[in-house]
């Protein structure tokens, strides 16, 4: 199995998730602020933002 460096964000991470599930060893590098997906509220949908 391969070692994979993951520099993706948002949906690019779906590609590396598939590789992880195929058994590869994935290491994700994020900025200090973290992937912007981390900032998304736990409740989705416009109403939760109102």
């Amino acid at each position: 199995m391969a070692r994979i460096l993951d520099l993706t964000s948002l949906m690019g991470a779906y590609g590396t998730r598939l590789l992880a599930e195929l058994g590869h060893d994935v290491l994700r590098i994020e900025s200090l602020k973290g992937d912007s997906v981390r900032q998304e509220a736990p409740v989705l949908g416009g109403a939760s933002r109102a």
Binding site: E40, P42, V43, L44, G45, G46, A47
Partner: peptide
């Protein structure tokens, strides 16, 4: 998690 159906956003984003 929210126990609500996914919002149908049309062309908008969550």
């Amino acid at each position: 998690v929210t126990r609500r159906p996914p919002a149908r956003l049309g062309g908008r984003s969550s």
